[in-house]
Design a protein around this nucleic acid. Structure first.
Lengths: 185, 185
DNA sequence: GTTCCACTATACCGATCTGTATAGTGGAAC
DNA sequence: GTTCCACTATACAGATCGGTATAGTGGAAC
């Protein structure tokens, strides 16, 4: 990726997350990136493509972030699940004050044929599979059911964080997950 | 409200929810309502005002829906909390296949000074207060903590429903809420 | 020293955006 | 029978939308 393209993607990512995808135009993105529209279209071809690369990059960074946190914890321990919740809390504190970018994008992209759709759904399916794998690893009974509960707790914490109704929902969800895991050993 | 205004609000509500607020223009709303733009602006004054009335009406309907369900259950019972989860499941099945309209609107409205903002936050605060009142009524220990857990479970179920990753997340959340209430008696 | 190539600068396209202006119609109220 | 009023019809304003066209610049590669 060229320096100009990197600046375009960085500016678009910030603007899409802060103001919404439909609310941000390509002229603004180019201007904020310090680039002409010609460069923007030479590199990405369309606004939709910038949206796709914004979500794909964020998805990739999140998965790497989680993988790095999981690598610190011994497999087979219930702490592995808690490490995911801890990762979410840190991730939100540092780069997601307004909630999950995938959920926000899902609210704006109605058409399931949009190329960004599969990225959004793909990340959520990956999270459910991850929870399922982690509780199976931990040898919990009724693993699928437990994984779905963890998924609901996790998504709920993300949304509650974005709404700002009460402080530290991710920490709260983590503590509830810990109790669940302790009870189902 | 005049017949024309009612049709405008009905069309706008459907379109805003299905396609997103920024993605829907006033020309489309007027056309779908079978009304001229003149009528639309005579009745509402601005698109923002239509957005506000869309969310306010939906909020009002939701609160009335919950109140009606709660009225069926004897106060002081843990079943009152479960009635809220049941209400959500039915509400989503009949009119919210894509998730909570407030969460969707929150994803598109970045500015906290937007007149719709307080409606969105207001509904979520009302839900947290409702859960708190219901568990206090039930005489549960650590009521505030329990209410926040229920809030997270509830928001998580709404989002999971919209994403469609697994079936009946509201029913799943309801069952987990029932276990929590049984354990904290 | 010519060929790439990432880039700037600027002007433009047709479409759509929110919002307004002017003129007129049909029916109920009083 | 005139006064309201909710409404239609149409045209337009100024801005912004996503996207394209033409022309040119500066530096590294070979």
């Amino acid at each position: 990726m060229t320096p100009g393209a990197r600046r375009v993607l960085a500016a678009a990512s910030r603007l899409f997350y802060e103001r919404g995808i439909h609310a941000v135009g390509v002229d603004l993105i180019a201007s904020e990136a310090g680039v002409t529209k010609k460069t923007l279209y030479d590199r990405f071809g369309s606004k939709d493509q910038i949206v796709v690369e914004y979500l794909a990059a964020r998805d990739e960074r999140w998965r790497a972030f989680v993988a790095e946190r999981l690598a610190r914890v011994e497999p087979g321990s219930a702490d592995r699940v808690l490490a995911v919740f801890d990762a979410s809390r840190d991730w939100m504190a540092e780069s997601s004050p307004k909630g999950c970018s995938m959920v926000k994008a899902h609210a704006e992209i109605s058409d399931a044929s949009h190329p960004a759709y599969e990225i959004i759904i793909g990340q959520k399916q990956w999270m459910l599979t991850l929870f399922t794998d982690l509780v199976r690893e931990y040898a919990a009974p009724r693993a699928d059911e437990l994984a779905r509960t963890l998924m609901i707790l996790h998504e709920g914490a993300l949304v509650a964080h974005g709404l700002g109704i009460f402080p530290d929902p991710a920490g709260h969800a983590r503590d509830r997950a810990a109790e669940l895991l302790a009870a189902s050993c």
